[in-house]
């Protein structure tokens, strides 16, 4: 070490430490940087991208332009939904346990950082990871649709090349229908609700990891809660007369609400009002779960 002169003190005139979004953001960005280095994340994202990319080949086994586009949309939205859910669970499950195990949490909480800021930062990092991975999958989805659209337009143009005026008009109509099917706003709605669903799953996983240090437990329990949430609608119908069952079901988020892909593939119009309702439901549940996670984490011995 060198004989450096006494270092001047930075401004230390604070006598209060308020909640800081800046600290949350610093922890969040660091969490994202750490998460994208995980092999399991890279593996899941690659699997997602490969399946989305291969949808273009699966679609060739269907007859008709609309059917082929339907297969692509069905496959891609399904893959985005499954992979984002898995990333939400796996990417969030180890966030707190690894900080405790590596003892990096000691150096962070020894600074003027509130536990709530730390927890929120971790959740923010997890959300950033979801946004990033879903953006990558959506880009791939968009590219697949564009390639399919161009290929269909080329085929239709060649088929009707030099035909009668009526045939050309029919071709133009079909091309227009392809374009309408490709630029389906319902897909945006499906991706948005999937993102909120994945964030909700991440919040459930974060809640579980505030009281458990086992990675297996932190993955298995949120997955079971997710499955229970997917079947919640059916369970409510079956056990509506059982108070205890209804009380338990009231705690489990209704993940089935977020599945818009089926409606979209059946050609049903999903109104924005419904999407808004689902998003508000998801965000409200998420806030309650993060607050519950804070209440547990603030009392946890580290």
């Amino acid at each position: 070490m060198t004989n450096a002169a006494a270092v001047p003190a930075p401004s230390s005139s604070h006598d209060r430490v308020g909640f800081s979004l800046n600290r949350v953001s610093v922890i969040g960005v660091n969490t994202l940087t750490e998460a994208i280095r995980q092999k399991v994340f890279i593996f899941l994202l690659l699997v997602g991208l490969v399946f989305i990319g291969s949808a273009i080949f699966f679609s060739q086994y269907s007859l008709g332009e609309q059917e082929q586009l339907k297969v692509i949309k069905d496959t891609c939205l399904g893959v985005i939904s499954v992979i984002s859910t898995l990333i939400a669970i796996v990417g969030t499950a180890q966030l707190l346990p690894s900080e405790v195990e590596n003892r990096t949490i000691y150096t962070i909480l020894a600074k003027p950082v509130r536990r709530f800021e730390f927890l929120l930062g971790k959740f923010y990092g997890s959300v950033l990871l979801l946004v990033l991975s879903m953006a990558a999958m959506c880009l791939m989805f968009g590219a697949v649709l564009w390639i399919k659209e161009q290929s269909m337009i080329r085929e239709l143009s060649q088929t009707y090349l030099g035909e009668t005026q009526a045939a050309t008009e029919q071709a133009n109509q079909q091309i227009e229908q392809v374009r309408i099917a490709v630029l389906d706003v319902n897909m945006v709605k499906a991706v948005l609700t999937d993102l909120v669903k994945a964030m909700l799953v991440a919040s459930v996983t974060l809640l579980v990891s505030t009281f458990s240090t086992s990675l297996v437990f932190n993955v298995a329990v949120p997955f079971m809660i997710y499955m229970a949430g997917m079947l919640r609608g059916t369970a409510v119908e079956m056990w509506s007369s059982h108070r205890l069952a209804m009380a338990v079901l009231a705690i489990v988020p209704d993940f089935g609400l977020f599945s818009l892909a089926d409606d979209i593939n059946l050609g049903n119009l999903v109104p924005w009002a419904h999407v808004d309702q689902v998003i508000v439901y998801g965000l409200a549940r998420m806030v309650v779960i993060v607050v519950a996670a804070h209440l547990i984490f603030s009392r946890r011995e580290i």
């Binding site: 660091n30 940087t33 590596n102 020894a110």
Partner: peptide, 28 residues
């Protein structure tokens, strides 16, 4: 939390984020 404004802590066998450089660690 105010009590930690004027405290620096070095834990035993500290682990840091290994992908960060020395300067990046201090920035964090």
């Amino acid at each position: 939390v105010v009590s930690r404004l004027h405290v620096g802590f070095l834990p035993e066998n500290p682990y840091f984020y290994r992908y960060l450089t020395g300067a990046e660690t201090l920035v964090f």
